[in-house]
Nucleic acid binder design. Structure first.
Lengths: 176, 176
DNA sequence: TATTGTTATACTCTATAACTATA
DNA sequence: TATAGTTATAGAGTATAACAATA
């Protein structure tokens, strides 16, 4: 945020580059989380036969108060309606969730975890926690954890506040 | 959520749960980065027709000193050999990289960026930087950025130092 | 024997568009 | 007209195993 240099190569000169600290932080953040994601996926697949997306959906239902609508469940986990329908279909087929019509809104579907679903989360969680602890928290001090949580919460909230670029926006039809 | 309870359902009682701060930090980290990844993918796809993986490969070659072997290029970006061959095939078909036999090691392939590849990186970078800045760095102070970079560097290095669970390890053949 | 890279194949996942039904 | 959800379908990506060639 000090002085801005013009970009070196081609491109819009209206966009100042990131300073080196920012660029490095961005790349290492993406790299570290990518590695973490990969290991976590391995653990979940090996011990529970589920993906991280499915784990998130189950965990959200298992730790929440009650059933969620499909839309409520999708929030932040899946970026298209059909994607959630697909995942919910798999989970339902495996007997981990149920889908029932909502009494309040006849358009909506209420999703609930089954006992099997809860059991699966419980079965997978210890190993999951172990992986996360040994990979993510092992090299961090308590202060680091708090600060990381604080920082990423701000980032998350900031992104959530932004109008999503392509979430609910319907595409305008070009003239046929 | 104050005192730690023993795991309710099935599972290993030898694995203590994460404390709430750790669990929250883990989830918000994954969520925020997932949102960021998604937006970044959109930008790269829209402005350059490439995925983030492809962008990483090109950027690594464009900012590095010279050609890399396939194995060197894969490092941390792709988790299977065939995955890299696939991506390299796409990039080569698009004229963004070239693959040539290595003079040093006749088994190896040396990958280089073409001028088109560099041009693409240059063309895409301003928008990329803009997205990253507005989504990730906007809500952060300079100290936050440094600390985040420091923390994630430690995490990355720690994960790299761990013996990878399934990277180069050959599967042992079960008795036939 | 170990390593580098490719191929074939199967599978998972995602997203777009069209559709139904309800608010 | 807008929203909730499903379906069909197509495309991108990944991983495993088998393979060839070189170290």
């Amino acid at each position: 945020m000090t002085d801005s240099q013009p970009p070196a190569g081609a491109g819009a000169e209206s966009v100042p580059p990131l300073d080196p600290a920012q660029l490095g932080t961005y790349f290492v953040l993406m790299e570290a989380v990518s590695l973490l994601q990969h290991q976590v996926e391995q653990q979940l697949r090996a011990e529970g036969g589920i993906s991280y997306v499915q784990f998130q959906l189950l965990a959200r239902l298992a730790h929440g108060d009650g059933p969620l609508t499909m839309t409520g469940l999708a929030d932040g986990v899946v970026y298209s309606r059909s994607g959630l329908t697909y995942q919910a279909g798999l989970l339902e087929k495996s007997g981990l969730i149920t889908r029932d019509p909502s009494p309040d809104d006849d358009r909506a579907t209420l999703v609930s975890v089954t006992d099997d679903g809860r059991a699966l989360v419980d079965r997978v969680l210890p190993g999951h926690v172990q992986v996360v602890r040994s990979l993510l928290f092992d090299p961090l001090a308590g202060d680091d954890v708090r600060h990381l949580g604080d920082v990423m919460t701000r980032v998350r909230d900031h992104m959530r506040a932004q109008p999503p670029r392509s979430a609910a926006s319907r595409r305008r039809r070009p003239a046929p």
